[in-house]
């Protein structure tokens, strides 16, 4: 039995007549301490998938099981890192983490808690910014804070919802390395959503593509067998890396093309007409 199981999960929105099925029959198994990257085009239902895993949404049919237990509500055991940080703007860096720590470890003593929070602040390199408010932080720092808050809950599963997509390329690669480093130090099950093939290949143990929605489902999965730690500078010359990257990219493009063809088939054909200017030259001048 796998650690996380998604068993024929389907979810749609809207009333009966005008319903959009976002996910259809999604099956996914994630082993304990495995790093899985779910990759897909924007709008394909990636965030919906992670919300299902987190328990923020409940499936219409099928089950989400962790440790074999059916999930019915969100909880701190599945730490989710939101795409847009979701930091509380009125709390400082310290306060944001403290809120989570106080709730998850209510029995912790004040001094101990202080030390504990400081450890996570140090872990994501935010030392010195403890008392800054989120709006005083850069995008990368905010995402680090979000990571620290999620990690401080010591979740069994780490759910990363496009954690780096809002960042610039340099900050992004820096944070990729940091997340990978933290994960290697303290292994746990991770499901990461991304739209970046390089990122997925660089960080994950396994890549699972999500077909374009609606009716999105998971496609064939790719094992990433590259050895860790992976160094991005040398990786670019690694033939395995290049091969895998090309394979995944090709696959993604293929399924996208298929989906488009499918969509064209039942699309309404528009009449092929061109507007003609019927006004006389003099009339045009007058106007």
């Amino acid at each position: 039995m796998a650690f996380i199981e998604l068993d024929n999960v389907s979810l749609g929105f809207g009333p009966d007549g005008d319903r959009t099925e976002v996910l259809t029959d999604v099956c996914l198994e994630v082993e304990e301490n495995e790093f899985v990257a779910v990759i897909g085009f924007s709008g394909s239902g990636k965030s919906t998938l992670i919300a299902l895993l987190a328990g923020l949404l409940l499936p219409d049919s099928g089950e989400v099981r962790i440790h074999g237990k059916v999930q019915t509500e969100p909880g701190p055991d599945r730490g989710i890192m939101f795409q847009n940080y979701s930091l509380l703007p009125w709390l400082s860096v310290y306060g944001n983490i403290e809120l989570a720590v106080k709730q998850v470890f209510p029995e912790m003593k004040t001094a101990e808690r202080k030390q504990y929070i400081q450890r996570y602040i140090d872990m994501v390199n935010l030392t010195g910014a403890e008392w800054k408010k989120p709006h005083e932080l850069s995008g990368g720092m905010r995402q680090r804070l979000s990571l620290a808050r999620t990690l401080s809950m010591q979740p069994e599963v780490l759910l990363l919802d496009e954690p780096l997509s809002a960042l610039d390329a340099l900050t992004r690669s820096q944070l990729q390395d940091e997340i990978t480093r933290i994960w290697e130090e303290d292994r746990r099950t991770v499901v990461m959503i991304t739209n970046d093939v390089d990122e997925a290949v660089l960080m994950a143990d396994r890549i699972v593509p999500l077909t374009p929605g609606p009716n999105a489902t998971l496609g064939q999965s790719f094992e990433v067998t590259l050895e860790r730690p992976r160094d991005r500078t040398t990786l670019n010359f690694n033939p395995d890396f290049k091969h895998l990257r090309n394979e995944v990219t090709e696959y993604m493009l293929d399924i996208n093309r298929e989906a488009k063809e499918l969509r064209v088939a039942d699309a309404i054909e528009l009449p092929d007409i061109q507007p003609i200017d019927l006004t006389t030259p003099s009339g045009r001048m007058a106007s």
């Binding site: 923020l56 509500e73 909880g75 599945r78 730490g79 847009n84 979701s86 809120l99 709730q103 998850v104």
Partner: peptide, 18 residues
Amino acid sequence: IDKDHLNVARVLRLGFKD
């Protein structure tokens, strides 16, 4: 109120008062 903030509350399982 921002829905994300409420999601944080849900993930943390904050009670009504909190």
